[in-house]
Write a protein that binds this DNA or RNA. Structure first.
Length: 417
DNA sequence: TCTGGGGTCCTAGGACCC
DNA sequence: TCTGGGGTCCTAGGACCC
């Protein structure tokens, strides 16, 4: 048996932990640059605020219903996530952290499943302030279904789906588009072909499913029938690509400022590579104009540079990224977004050296680990490359940012007695 | 004024090799 | 009359997830 633990309205719940007066109040959290709604409390959902809605179009509703609006505070969400996952890890035989707010648990050897889940949920709530829902079933896909029921149709936030009769009964009420692995396109496609509920898929012709929805669709159907096709991954697999990109808070015109942004994203990619103990062999830089400004000329170029020797050195990766940027930059456009993607990633310990490379890689490695160490201790970007700039006018818009209650000393709550 | 960021996997088709 | 069989690698496009 597998459990899926999912934090309810995670980002919105995080904002509420340190502001309990917001209990029962509508809350939304906006994407970077205060662009779109990416999380909503139940009260905000009830007001009809849609996921992904552009914030500027919702302003009247926000004002009228006194919705509490937050910029995203990933330092806070990441830290609370880490705390929730730690509790789940300690309380179960094995865990796969699936995303910032979800984890699969291996339930092997646990007897009273319902009681176990209720206790776990209470503990997470008490220790972190984050409400979670827990669904339990024989496969990951079914655990996802069970979780949905737990969240929407139970008092205690826990739902166990084990007996075949229970499972099939539930599947008759689940629309195909609610299933894990069915997105917009497959949802429409299946409905055109007469499949409405998950139960219809259980009874579908498997070879038709495979030829129309690839092997992934087939796996999903098998999992609905209780045959496991996806297993717990105890160690996160090495990433194949790492991307750092942002929209700008304002239009950026000059190469200089664009360069600061690209240099910053490149150094962040290099830092993420070092965290993963990986090296990249290719660096892709892209810049984009604003696609919503129809009247403006659009220009969305990219360039990829292949490295002779795989690297995770910030200086090297940034230098290459800036070369690519200079190649694609054109005057006369207003740029809205830029990004760096590193790919062809290999493990740090299997670096293919070059016969003609005369860099002192040992020295560079020491520099980078000293920089990482200082930045970890003293705050992000305390030590950085000068090309990353100092004004950073292109920075994100974050007008409603909450304090980093748990990760920054100056933001720790004060209690007056 | 104003519209996010970060990933994975699969398949088909085109190129190449022997 | 009529043109094999077995591979690899790369890319673009399309689907999905959070």
């Amino acid at each position: 048996m597998i459990a899926l633990v999912d934090c309810n309205n995670f980002y919105a719940s995080c904002e509420r932990v340190f502001q309990p007066q917001l209990e029962k109040q509508p809350i939304v959290v906006l994407s970077n640059n205060d662009g779109c709604v990416i999380a909503r409390s139940n009260e905000a959902k009830a007001l009809g605020i849609k996921m992904g809605a552009p914030a500027f179009k919702m302003k009247t509703i926000f004002d009228h219903y006194k919705v509490h609006v937050f910029s995203s505070n990933f330092a806070l969400y990441g830290d609370l996530s880490r705390r929730v996952m730690q509790i789940l890890d300690e309380g179960s035989p094995a865990i796969e952290i699936y995303s910032i707010d979800e984890a699969f648990l291996d339930l092997n050897g646990i007897n009273k499943l319902n009681q176990f889940a209720i206790n776990l949920r209470t503990k997470v709530g008490k220790w972190t302030g984050i409400p979670v829902s827990i669904g339990m079933a024989p496969t990951k896909t079914l655990a996802k279904v069970a979780n949905k029921i737990a969240k929407k149709h139970t008092q205690n936030g826990v739902f166990l789906m084990r007996k075949e009769t229970t499972i099939y009964q539930v599947l008759k009420y689940i629309p195909v588009s609610d299933l894990w692995g069915i997105g917009r396109q497959y949802g429409k496609f299946l409905s055109r072909n007469g499949f409405n509920t998950a139960w219809d898929l259980v009874n579908a012709n498997e070879s038709w499913i495979k030829s129309n929805m690839s092997v992934n669709g087939l796996r999903m159907v098998k999992e609905l029938k209780g045959i496991p096709c996806y297993f717990l991954e105890h160690q996160p697999p090495r990433k194949k690509n790492i991307c750092t990109s942002r929209s700008f808070g304002m239009d950026v015109i000059h190469l200089q400022e664009l360069g600061e942004a690209v240099a910053s994203y490149a150094s962040t990619c290099a830092m993420k590579l070092r965290q993963e103990k990986s090296l990249t062999s290719s660096i892709l830089v892209f810049i984009k104009t604003n696609p919503f400004k129809n009247a403006d000329h659009q220009y969305n170029p990219c360039q990829k540079i292949i490295l002779d020797v795989p690297s995770n050195d910030s200086m090297e990766i940034t230098k290459q990224a800036l070369t690519a940027l200079k190649n694609i930059y054109k005057k006369g456009f207003s740029y809205k977004k830029a990004g760096v993607i590193v790919g062809d990633i290999v493990p740090q310990n299997s670096q293919q050296l070059s016969l003609f490379d005369n860099k002192d890689s040992f020295k560079i490695k020491n520099i980078m680990s000293a920089v990482d160490h200082i930045n970890q201790k003293m705050g992000r970007n305390k030590i950085r490359l000068a090309v990353q700039g100092f004004d950073r006018k292109w920075r994100l818009k974050q007008e409603k940012l909450s304090p980093c209650y748990t990760t920054r000393f100056s933001d720790v709550l004060e209690v007056k007695v």
